[in-house]
Simulated scan of single mutants.
Amino acid sequence: MTLRAVLVSCVVFATGAVSTVAHAGDKRPGASLGNAKGDRQGKTITVETSIQTMVNGDRGSGKAGKLSTANSNWTPPACWYEPAFSPKEIQKRIKTLRSVGNSIPFMGGLGDILGDFFDSYYKDGHPYKDYNLDKQGKGMFWTRVVNPNRKDDPKAMECNRSPFWVDDNETPKEPLAVNPRILAEYAYDELPIPGTRIEMAPKAETKVNLPTWVWLDKAKFKKVSVTASLPNTNLSATTTAEPVSLRIDPGTKDAETYPASGECAIGKDGRIGEPWARGKSEETPSCGVKYLRSSGDGSYNLKATVRWEISWTSTNTGREGLPDGEFGADQAVVVKEIQSVNR
């Protein structure tokens, strides 16, 4: 790295987030520069995402739990590029960095170095000329966005390009440029998955060799979707999660599950498991567990995990699959011996 690049990095890192005034009347993504900041390499500019989400068609998020992907080799994207700055905004950004850099006492004059560095890139034809002001209103500079759910992911550093120009209605060749697939994967992270607390009968405690019925609240565990869209573009995608099965891990080898696999599939009525009712004492539950040994003075840690099938659609692609997701929780189960009375 050259001395100039090192000094530029120091100034950008020292100044952190720099607020500027957005171009009046510009309502496109990234119009506000208040959250823009340079990274430690001093060449990229990071902004907060402009992606908006709707849960089941309504604004806002009812987020409860985060899905774990069933495919350990896949995670939602850690970063991508979005349209962020108009030519006038890039111009103001560089002027502000120059001013702030010159105002730091122990770095006197380095603001000019910083300004010259970026001016060379965006003003003097290397590769852009005069900040692309002649294209004002005809496109945007795209820049780096870090997934707010993946800030600590090392892959977030893969988006290290300086802001680059994209004409309106043009598809960037950059693989990490936001697209319907990335929106679908972002929506995956935003799915409001309910906590996996199962219903059991007997409820308070169960007995050795007594089948315990297990089921899920049908009204709570149902299909859910999140639509992610980028304002003022034609980009949007809807990701849908649908519960398909419940896996039971009794927390001990001294137990049997119903069915034997421990995987309770969703029924035709959309229910996983069947609630216990009077008169079913002699029946075998379709979903449940039977403990073969007492838990003594403690309890067994039963883990219930729901598998969610994931799919997505967008305006310009067909339905495509994403890795199934899982979300589970532990519950303490007390198991007692059946007391017999000797006469």
Rank of each mutant, 00 (worst) to 15 (best):
Q331W: 00
G109Q: 10
W80T: 02
T206L: 05
G25W: 13
T315Y: 06
M157E: 12
V100Y: 08
G195F: 06
F13P: 02
I182C: 11
E283G: 09
G111A: 08
A22W: 11
D189Q: 09
A78I: 06
G62H: 06
R150S: 02
Y258S: 00
S286G: 15
P83F: 01
P77E: 07
G42Q: 05
S340N: 14
V8T: 07
A64F: 07
V166W: 02
K27T: 15
G321H: 09
G108M: 13
G62M: 05
R319A: 13
K207I: 08
G279H: 09
L133Q: 13
E242M: 11
A5Y: 05
T49P: 00
D112C: 05
T143Y: 02
R93P: 01
T20V: 14
T252L: 00
N102T: 07
N234K: 14
V12F: 06
G325I: 02
V306H: 01
T284F: 14
L183A: 03
V12K: 03
S314A: 08
K155S: 12
R28G: 08
G321C: 07
T313R: 02
F118A: 02
K88S: 14
A304F: 01
P127S: 11
S294Y: 00
F118C: 01
S72V: 12
K207F: 13
L114S: 03
A156V: 02
R40A: 12
Y81R: 09
S99C: 11
V8P: 01
E309M: 13
K268R: 15
L210M: 14
N234S: 13
T240D: 03
N179H: 09
P87T: 04
G34M: 10
R278T: 10
Y131D: 01
S229C: 06
Q52A: 05
S86H: 04
N35P: 03
V55A: 15
Y81E: 06
D249C: 01
D152P: 02
K223M: 15
A70V: 07
R59L: 14
A260I: 12
Y258L: 04
R319D: 09
P148N: 06
S99Y: 12
Q331E: 12
